[in-house]
């Protein structure tokens, strides 16, 4: 099953409100990943986002679900800036996952 999350509808054209990111994460992302469903996060119409917003959106799914999250989270209509921020969060979360066990 595929889930579609349209960020602009909830966060506007500049995604900075972490409360909204948290709500999307808890109400949509985590339940979908728990069922191993694919989630398409659509950034169409979103011009920018803060690292804090992206972190609040996807860091916990990555930490909790690891490969399930990597396999099932798909990003659509992402501009260069947001793509870079998502990549940064992916990198540092993967670095940090290992260190949880040290």
């Amino acid at each position: 099953m595929k889930n579609l999350i349209k960020i602009k509808r909830m966060a506007g054209d500049f995604a900075e409100n972490k409360d909204i990111a948290k709500r999307i994460r808890i109400e949509q992302l985590m339940p979908a990943l728990l069922k191993q469903n694919e989630v398409i996060i659509d950034f169409g119409g979103v011009n920018g986002a803060t690292q804090s917003f992206i972190h609040a959106l996807i860091s916990d799914p990555i930490r909790e679900f690891k490969n399930i999250a990597f396999d099932n989270l798909i990003y659509k209509n992402v501009n260069g800036d947001i793509r870079e921020i998502i990549s940064i969060v992916y990198r540092y979360m993967q670095e940090s996952i290992d260190s949880d066990n040290i």
Binding site: S52, D60, R63, V89, Y92
Partner: peptide, 19 residues
């Protein structure tokens, strides 16, 4: 990577210590 909310690398679900 340093946030007031945790010492854990990668931060908490809401804070990474990057801002």
């Amino acid at each position: 990577g340093i946030t007031g909310t945790t010492r854990r690398e990668g931060g908490t679900a809401e804070n990474a210590g990057a801002g």
